[in-house]
Amino acid sequence: MNILIAIDRFEDALTSQEAASYVEEGVKAVHRTANVISVPLFDGQKHLIDGILAWQQGTKYTWKIPDANMKRRDVTAAAMNDRFYIDCSDLYGQTENMLQTSSYGLGQMLLNGLDLDYRVFTIALGETALFDGGMGMLERLGAQFYDLNEEKLAGPLDSESIKKVRRIDLSGLDDRLSESTFTVISDYDYYLFGNKSQIAAQSLPDEAKTKLDNQIWYLNEQFKKTGLYLSLEKGGHAGGLRALFESLFHARTLSSKEMIFEETSIEELLNEADIIIYGGGNVKPADNSLVAQALTQKVSSDKRFIYLAAGQQFAPPDHSVYYLNIYPDMTPETDSMKLGIQLQNSIQTLLNIAR
């Protein structure tokens, strides 16, 4: 019997790897001779680096990098073969002041990768609160921004600097960027500005939202003067970073699901499995992750699909999936060990019943 464990994270209580280890212990207590394969998942929102390194050997780098509010924090990147991975949730997932943000740190991360001789980059935009339109990143990479008096703006530049911009010069961008290829991981199709933008979805006063929205609109008008036209309908993730990478660096954009199925052997493992155990957890009401949705689409009568959820993650729509919410009262304070033991006990009980 082949059993595949492809379980997602449970908020910040358990990573995919941690959750899978508890489930695997429960599985082996029932099916001692089964071939159990545990697949660590990762997404474009959190835990990209650890997930990637769990799949294959690579190198981890940690640097002190300025976050969205220019406070230095430890940020980790990964490299495998010729590809360099950056997870923006490490940089921009805990923004304190959303009215004055800078992507300067991402520019530094890219320079670090270039200096290490990498030319293939994967950048997960993740759960970012960043609204400078990529201005800080471009400045760090060599672009220059000028004010009304044709004086160069002194950096590091942030969203508050946008109103001073009258001319943008992209000719000084690091030459190595033209030799590089980029993949952006984004699960959000935000508009660049307007009612469907990422700014509109923030918990901010209307006045603050209007200010940020106008700044992104204005910067986009300045980009147009350089011949750079950003995607308005789907490029607004990370305050326009997605559109900037797509337009300026011709980046390819993938969802978390597409990335996992492309970079791992999960498709082959899924075809060989007799039992597939998957799921995840959310504190707030939420649909399944894109990866979980993709696995549900593979449901067939010759396999048994078991979905373990927690908190307020909705059940998969396919009624042929065995669904169990193992911890409905999950909160941000839920003890990770309690959650893990509940996962272990639940799958052990379910498999015993099914025998």
Rank of each mutant, 00 (worst) to 15 (best):
1 M>L: 08
2 N>C: 08
4 L>K: 09
10 F>H: 09
15 T>R: 03
16 S>A: 05
17 Q>F: 14
18 E>F: 08
18 E>V: 06
18 E>D: 05
21 S>V: 14
23 V>Y: 12
24 E>I: 13
24 E>H: 14
29 A>M: 12
31 H>I: 08
33 T>F: 11
34 A>N: 10
37 I>Q: 15
45 Q>P: 10
52 I>G: 08
53 L>V: 12
54 A>Q: 14
55 W>D: 12
55 W>P: 05
65 I>T: 00
68 A>N: 01
68 A>P: 03
75 V>T: 01
75 V>I: 02
80 M>W: 12
83 R>S: 09
91 L>V: 00
95 T>V: 07
96 E>P: 02
97 N>R: 06
101 T>V: 01
102 S>T: 01
105 G>E: 00
105 G>K: 01
110 L>I: 07
118 Y>V: 07
120 V>R: 08
120 V>Q: 15
122 T>L: 15
123 I>T: 02
125 L>S: 00
128 T>F: 02
128 T>S: 15
129 A>K: 02
130 L>A: 07
136 G>S: 00
137 M>G: 00
138 L>R: 03
141 L>Y: 02
142 G>T: 01
142 G>D: 00
155 G>Q: 06
156 P>N: 02
158 D>P: 00
159 S>E: 03
160 E>T: 08
163 K>N: 14
163 K>I: 11
171 S>I: 09
171 S>K: 13
174 D>C: 05
174 D>Q: 08
174 D>R: 04
177 L>I: 04
179 E>H: 04
187 D>C: 11
187 D>Y: 12
189 D>E: 14
193 F>C: 10
195 N>A: 12
195 N>I: 10
195 N>D: 11
196 K>Y: 04
205 P>L: 09
206 D>Y: 09
208 A>S: 12
209 K>W: 03
209 K>F: 01
210 T>S: 12
211 K>T: 14
213 D>L: 10
213 D>H: 07
218 Y>K: 11
219 L>F: 04
219 L>A: 10
221 E>C: 14
221 E>W: 08
226 T>Q: 05
227 G>L: 04
229 Y>R: 05
231 S>G: 13
233 E>L: 12
238 A>H: 08
240 G>K: 01
241 L>E: 01
242 R>Q: 15
243 A>R: 04
246 E>K: 05
247 S>C: 06
249 F>I: 02
250 H>P: 11
251 A>S: 07
252 R>Y: 07
252 R>Q: 06
256 S>E: 14
256 S>T: 11
258 E>W: 10
258 E>A: 15
259 M>V: 11
260 I>M: 10
260 I>Y: 07
265 S>D: 15
272 E>C: 05
272 E>D: 08
278 Y>P: 05
280 G>A: 10
282 N>I: 03
283 V>G: 04
284 K>W: 06
286 A>R: 04
287 D>S: 12
295 L>A: 08
295 L>N: 09
296 T>C: 14
298 K>W: 14
301 S>Q: 09
301 S>T: 11
302 D>R: 03
302 D>N: 07
303 K>P: 03
305 F>G: 01
308 L>R: 06
311 G>M: 01
313 Q>I: 06
313 Q>K: 04
317 P>S: 11
321 V>S: 02
325 N>L: 10
329 D>F: 05
330 M>C: 06
335 D>Y: 10
338 K>N: 12
338 K>H: 13
339 L>G: 06
339 L>N: 09
341 I>K: 14
343 L>W: 04
345 N>V: 11
347 I>L: 14
349 T>M: 14
